[in-house]
């Protein structure tokens, strides 16, 4: 299939500034969203994702001005998440220039929101973000993989609150409700720069037929190669390797291409 694997820089935004957290905490500032967006676009990013990381916790409105300023300068798709609790929030973000909205906590609290968004805006606009954390014990063994010692729990409110929901079951459910894509973040891997959680990513990709974006743990281009080689994932998201210029989107793509991964160059 000629569909290119997508490389997606992620911009965690707090008060209109791009920040990068470690394990969803200890947030540090990294810069201006519009500048980042322009830079990534010119490097060949396939898409951008903005996450207002503190929105769910503090009930903050996602910064619509940032969204529209970014939409003016870039000609690639972008997704905005954080703080979307109801249809009207999603509509406002889409009208500000976002192509897709990503919902996380709100989807868990009110799964029907997924169906409502899908029926009005179309499936392709609806990204469900799943923040998953590996748990050992503390729950009945998963019915389908009862030999495994661990399971992945869906966490909400920026990774801080457990739900008791199995991430694989949740992925299937959001697909059936109308999600067009899953943004899968491993809380364990996020910020470690030790690579994506291959087991988690593979489990979710195998469970659904909608595109999946792998997130959390990318510290070098090799990690993207690993996740594309070892799973059926459609896109790889990264933040720090691009923000701190350890690599560029263009260099990552050249590296992936030379290793047999189809990318848009």
């Amino acid at each position: 299939m000629p569909l290119a694997k997508r490389i997606i820089p992620c911009l965690d935004v707090d008060n209109g500034r791009v920040v990068k957290g470690v394990h969803f905490e200890e947030v540090k500032e990294a810069g201006d969203p519009v500048e980042f967006a322009q830079k990534y676009k010119s490097q060949g990013a396939d898409e951008l994702i903005f996450l207002d990381i503190t929105a769910s916790q503090q009930g903050r409105e996602t910064m619509r001005n940032v969204v529209s300023n970014v939409a003016k300068v870039i000609d690639i798709p972008f997704t905005v998440g954080g703080g979307i609790r109801m249809l009207e929030d999603a509509r406002e973000i889409l009208l500000s220039g976002a192509d897709k909205v990503s919902i996380n906590t709100a989807a868990v609290k009110n799964p029907e929101l997924i169906r409502d968004l899908m029926s009005i805006f179309g499936r392709q606009c609806v990204v469900v973000a799943i923040d998953a954390k590996k748990n050992v014990g503390g729950r009945e063994a998963r019915s389908e993989n009862s030999d495994q010692e661990y399971w992945f729990e869906v966490k909400i409110f920026g990774g801080k609150t457990g739900t008791g929901i199995d991430a694989i079951e949740w992925a299937r459910k959001v697909e059936s409700l109308g999600a067009g894509e899953i943004l899968l973040t491993s809380i364990d891997a996020d910020g470690t720069e030790n690579g994506y959680d291959i087991n988690l990513t593979k489990s979710i990709c195998d469970a659904v037929r909608i595109p999946v974006i792998a997130s959390g743990g990318c510290g070098e281009p090799k990690h993207m190669l690993e996740v594309f080689k070892q799973t059926d994932v459609d896109a790889a998201l990264a933040a720090s390797i691009f923000h701190y210029e350890k690599s560029s989107v263009g260099r990552v793509k050249d590296y992936l291409k030379s290793n047999g991964i189809e990318v848009r160059v």
Partner: peptide
Amino acid sequence: KVKIPHMGWNN
């Protein structure tokens, strides 16, 4: 046979 939606860059 393929993932739906068709989401991404194609030739």
